[in-house]
């Protein structure tokens, strides 16, 4: 970690550091993880710091939190460049890059109101297939609609 970051946030003992989030998206990452700050977890958010790879980036540190697979998938959709560091006893014990899964089930809704996945009471989840990574595009497996990255973000973050 670079010196200027160390100035901003101290190290965490156990938890997760999500690094290399495209600048300005840290709050979305917290939102999709369902972290409001009222859980009592220690959370640090660093925004718009220098990054060799991205120019500018955001970082999120969350103490005591271990991510589930669905969480990592969601992060990959918001921040495809993110790396996830698991911290135990102040040390990084694993470091991995997120990757957008080929198929995603039930994480966000299809934007097409006439899609079967949007019919109330029908017992099924949304299902999407990755069709393009950059720009990110995912296709609904039921109605065929291709969701743009913006549309996916809006569905994930409710805005």
């Amino acid at each position: 970690m670079r010196r200027d970051e160390r100035l901003l946030v101290s190290k965490i003992q156990d938890g997760t550091v999500i690094d290399h989030i495209p600048a300005g998206n840290a709050l979305y990452v917290l939102k999709i993880l369902g972290i409001t700050g009222r859980e009592g977890l220690r959370v640090a958010v660093v925004m718009n710091v220098e990054s060799k790879k991205l120019g500018k980036k955001d970082i999120v540190k969350i103490e005591k939190l271990e991510l589930k697979k669905d969480d990592v998938n969601k992060i990959s959709l918001i921040a495809p460049t993110a790396t996830i560091n698991i911290i135990r006893n102040y040390k990084v014990v694993s470091k991995s890059k997120v990757s957008v899964p080929e198929r995603i089930e039930g994480l966000f809704s299809c934007i097409n109101p006439r899609c079967i996945t949007n019919q109330p009471r029908e017992p099924l989840k949304s299902k999407f297939r990755l069709v393009s990574l950059s720009p990110l595009k995912m296709q609904c497996e039921y109605c065929g609609y291709i969701m743009s990255h913006d549309e996916i973000l809006r569905q994930l973050t409710g805005g």
């Binding site: 097409n112 006439r114 899609c115 079967i116 996945t117 019919q119 029908e122 497996e141 039921y142 109605c143």
Partner: peptide, 12 residues
């Protein structure tokens, strides 16, 4: 069906 994807769902 008028709903899109209904046939795929029925097939499942």
């Amino acid at each position: 069906h008028s709903i899109e994807g209904a046939a795929k769902f029925a097939a499942e």
